[in-house]
Amino acid sequence: MTLHHDTHPAPAPAPAPEGVAGPATAAPASSSAAPPDATAAARLSGGGLTLAYDRRVVAEGLDVAVPDGSFTVIVGPNACGKSTLLRALARILKPSAGAVVLDGRPIAGWPAKKLARTLGLLPQTSIAPEGISVADLVARGRYPHQGLLRQWSREDERVVTESMEATGVAELADRAVDELSGGQRQRVWIAMALAQQTPLLLLDEPTTYLDIAHQIEVLDLCARLHEEGRTVVAVLHDLNHASRYATHLIAMRDGRIVAEGEPGAVVTAELVEDVFGLPCQVIDCPETGTPLVVPAARRRAP
C-alpha cells in the first residue's frame, strides 16, 4: 500500500537561499535554537518575509527553512501568523517583502501546475461540491498531472486508488462526501492532496473540528506519509500533538519565530510560558517520551 512518488527530481542541489532575502532586514527574526545547517539543505525556505493582509502586517523579516524530509510543525497562539506563514510557503499569500524559495528558484516564478506537482496543500477550508463522490473528489487531485488531451490516464486511475487505500477511504469510494463524518471527510481531502503526488505536503490545521480519536487518526496518517519519504509541514493548535509528531518544531509569537528545532530540545516550561503565556510543567510523555505540557492548576480564590 505504499504510494510511489512520481519522478520529480529536485533540480540540482538547492543553493542557499540567503541571496534572495528581501530588503527587509532579518534582524530580530530568529533567536532560534535551530539546527545550524537547516537552511543550507532546505528545498523550501523563506527569507526576509514580510507578510500582510492589505495593510495589516502579520509578520516582518521572517526567515524560515523547512528541513528536507522532516515533519515540521508550526505552533503558536491564535493570530501569531502561523497559518499566514504556511499560506506564504504555498504561494497563496504573496509576501510584501522577501521571497519564498523552492528548489533554488523564487516560488513566485513557478508555473502553477508545475508547482502543484511539487508542493501540495490541504487548506483549512475547502468546499466539497454538492453530491460529489469520494472517488470523484480524490480524482480532482490529479488535475496538475492532466491536460486537455490527457484527462484520465491509467496512471491517474492507479494513483487515485492508491491514495484512497493509503488513507483508508477506499471502501467509501462511491459514497457522497457530504454524507461522511468529519474524520472521514478530512481523510478524503488528504487523499486528494496525496493524489497530487507531491514530495512536499503542507497541511493547515488538519485536525481542527475533529474529536480526539479522529485527531490522532489523522496525525498518525500524516506521520506515515512522512515516514514514506515526504516532507510534511503542518500548522497545529495542540502543543502536545506537535511535540509528539514533529521532527522539527517552529514556535511562533506575534509574527516572529521564537524557537525552532527538535521538540525535545525546544519545548520547555519557559518557552510555553513565553509563547503562550501559560504557566505549566513539562514532563515526559509516558507513551512516547516526548515533551508533555501540563498546565498549572488554577489557584483557588482566597
Binding site: 499560506r87 504555498a90 504561494r91 497563496i92 502553477a112 501546475k113 508545475k114 508547482l115 502543484a116 506537482r117 501540495g120 496543500l121 490541504l122 487548506p123 483549512q124 477550508t125 475547502s126 468546499i127 466539497a128 461540491p129 480532482r140 487531485g141 488535475y143 496538475p144 492532466q146 486537455l148 484527462q151 492532496a193 497530487q196
Partner: peptide, 24 residues
C-alpha cells in the same frame, strides 16, 4: 467549454484548494 471548463470545476472546491491544484 474547452479552455476553462476543467479549471471552473476545480474552482468549485474553494480558492485555496483550486490554487493548490495548480489553477491560476
Amino acid at each position: 467549454l474547452v479552455g476553462c471548463g476543467r479549471a471552473l470545476r476545480m474552482l468549485e472546491l474553494g480558492d485555496d484548494a483550486a490554487h493548490a491544484l495548480g489553477v491560476p
